[in-house]
Amino acid sequence: MQQTRDISFATPRRTELFDDLVDLFLGAGFRHLTLDEIARRLKCSKSTLYTLAGSKEQLVRAATVHFFRRNTQIVEDRLASTAGSRERISAYLSAVGHALSTASADFMSDLDTFPPAREVYEQNSRIAARRVQELIDEGVAKGDFRHVNAAFAADLVSTMMVRIQQGAVRDQIGLDDASAYRELASILTAGIGL
């Protein structure tokens, strides 16, 4: 498998194309779209798409990476402007839920059935779980939370994030992704509070 081209040195036009690509995929999914259809919807040529990635599979993976990079910055910015241990965990998980709330059921289904994109999602879920673990550890150190096994709590968060991503929470309970993340934050912070 070829490496996905690095988009960290993207030009404004490439960034705009990736933003448009992400928006297209979030709304319509991607499995059913051909490169011709993607180019038509983005109002660009197929050769332009090939400057972003060497194949449709690589394009989907690169767009998924772009989605998470873009939203990681938004989530971290929200976290940076939030004080208080409980509030920081709630802000973090709510921001993650908000970022994912823009994804259609088609996108989430396609993501789950396309291993390269699912791998990106799962990697970001692990990163998010580690971030929650750090936030719990910070809260315990400050005396805002009771002493808990932060790794276990982070694993619990990670497990729920996967269930949310797979649509299990939506299908079985009826909560949309954003609401599920808010509930997760509420239960977690109440469970570790003093």
Rank of each mutant, 00 (worst) to 15 (best):
I38C: 02
A39G: 11
R40P: 08
L42G: 03
C44V: 15
C44I: 15
S45T: 10
S45R: 04
S47W: 09
S47M: 12
T48F: 03
L49W: 01
Y50H: 05
A53K: 02
A53G: 02
S55G: 00
S55D: 00
S55C: 00
K56C: 00
E57K: 08
E57I: 05
E57T: 09
Q58G: 15
V60T: 00
V60I: 09
T64M: 05
T64D: 00
H66S: 08
H66A: 10
H66M: 06
F67H: 07
F67C: 06
F68R: 05
R69D: 15
R69T: 15
R70E: 09
N71A: 07
T72C: 08
T72H: 11
Q73N: 13
V75W: 07
E76M: 15
D77F: 12
A80E: 15
A80P: 05
S81G: 13
A83C: 08
G84P: 03
G84K: 04
S85V: 03
S85T: 08
R86P: 06
R86S: 11
R86D: 10
I89V: 10
A91W: 05
L93F: 04
L93M: 07
L93G: 04
A95E: 05
A95C: 10
V96S: 07
A99V: 11
A99F: 08
L100R: 09
S101R: 07
T102V: 09
T102S: 11
D106R: 15
D106I: 12
D110I: 04
D110M: 06
L111T: 06
L111V: 07
D112I: 10
T113Q: 14
T113A: 15
T113W: 10
T113G: 13
F114T: 06
P115E: 04
A117P: 03
R118S: 13
E119P: 05
E119L: 09
V120Y: 02
